[in-house]
Amino acid sequence: MKRIIQSLKERVGVKGALIMTGDGVVAASDLGGSLDADSVAALASASVLRAMKSATELGLGRIRRLTLTAAFGRFVFVPLDELVLVVVTEPQLDLDLTLLEIAGPARQMIAMSRLDHPM
């Protein structure tokens, strides 16, 4: 997981990334100096859970990705089975490219988590 976080962090415009469990426990993180991983995970967990509930109410189906863009940054949340990948990027970054770059590590993580928990 550390390796995946590291490779994500090397992408242009990516300020940091963390992997957490659905209930907000940080599994691996590298958010740089400006953000506290535990605080981000706590808030992200509450937000993702609420968003998932809203998604059910709106009939969106299983959430593939959640992107929050604000004045000073962008958070991309990718739910991966029991884990959530959180990527922090610059707000002006070309989101299309970022999403393409995040897709690869996300697929790797899903594969890893399935290996850890064989059906």
Binding site: L35, S39, L60, I63, R64, R65, A71
Partner: peptide, 18 residues
């Protein structure tokens, strides 16, 4: 998360997106 004013939220689901 100290991101300032929010501008956009996109929730992409398997069936539809908000």
């Amino acid at each position: 998360m100290d991101l300032g004013a929010p501008a956009r939220l996109v929730v992409e689901g398997e069936d539809s997106s908000c």
